[in-house]
Every structure is written in structure tokens, then in C-alpha cells.
């Protein structure tokens, strides 16, 4: 995935079944952000793979004051990349069988 300066990782091991996964997001390279970033640490949240969109979560982070509006896109993309990888892994495990 492209280096966006924002790192997103699983906060707990993915069991491959739950729609809601726990993710952890933090800024690795503040220089890649356009707006002012509130240096608060890692943000942990749950993400529903079926009902939610990465951009929606990014917007909520902006509204909560973690990121500037101009960085919603880069945060959303970072979450989207990680979510795509998790979905890909799940599909691969399903097709590989037990």
C-alpha cells in the first residue's frame, strides 16, 4: 500500500468471522498531512466491514478534532487500504478451506 504517513493496523487478531473489526490508527509521518494534526497518540476504533465506509470513519475523526478537514481523504485512504487487505485475507482463507 502507498505510504500515506498514516498507519492503520489490526488492534486485535482477526478471527475471520466478525463483521466488526478493531483497528488502530496513528500518524507515522506528520509531514505528509496537510492540516494541523493533534498529536494525541493511537486512535482505536471498531470498523464494520459490511455497514461502514473508511471515508465515513475518517470524517468522524475530523469532526472529533483528531485531524484537519483537508486530511480526511488521506485518513480515509489509509483505512481503506488496510480494510481491503483484511478482506482479501479473509477471502483467501475461505477459498483455501479449513
Amino acid at each position: 500500500a502507498e505510504d500515506t504517513g498514516v498507519r492503520v493496523e489490526l488492534a486485535e487478531e482477526d478471527d475471520g468471522k466478525k463483521a466488526a473489526i478493531a483497528l488502530k490508527l496513528w500518524v507515522e509521518d506528520p509531514k505528509k498531512l496537510k492540516g494541523k494534526y493533534k498529536e494525541s497518540g493511537a486512535i482505536e476504533f471498531t470498523f464494520d466491514l459490511e455497514k461502514e465506509t473508511p471515508e465515513g470513519v475518517a470524517q468522524e475523526m475530523v469532526e472529533s478534532g483528531f485531524f484537519h478537514e483537508s486530511d480526511a481523504k488521506i485518513v480515509g485512504k489509509s483505512i481503506r487500504d488496510r480494510v481491503a487487505l483484511i478482506k482479501w485475507r479473509r477471502e483467501r482463507n475461505v477459498s483455501a478451506g479449513p
Binding site: 497518540g41 493511537a42 486512535i43
Partner: peptide, 26 residues
């Protein structure tokens, strides 16, 4: 220590310190 932020949509964000080992060297 972790802090919690609950958005108007009901989402909960838990903020915790990033382990130094996981930060890129500046």
C-alpha cells in the same frame, strides 16, 4: 493512560500512546 471520545454518531474512539518502537525515526 487511554482517553475515550464518543462522537455524535455514537462511535467510540479510544486514544492511547503509540509505542515508541512503532514510530518512524524522524
Amino acid at each position: 493512560s487511554a482517553a475515550q471520545v464518543v462522537t455524535s454518531a455514537g462511535r467510540r474512539f479510544i486514544v492511547s500512546p503509540v509505542p515508541e518502537s512503532r514510530l518512524k525515526e524522524q
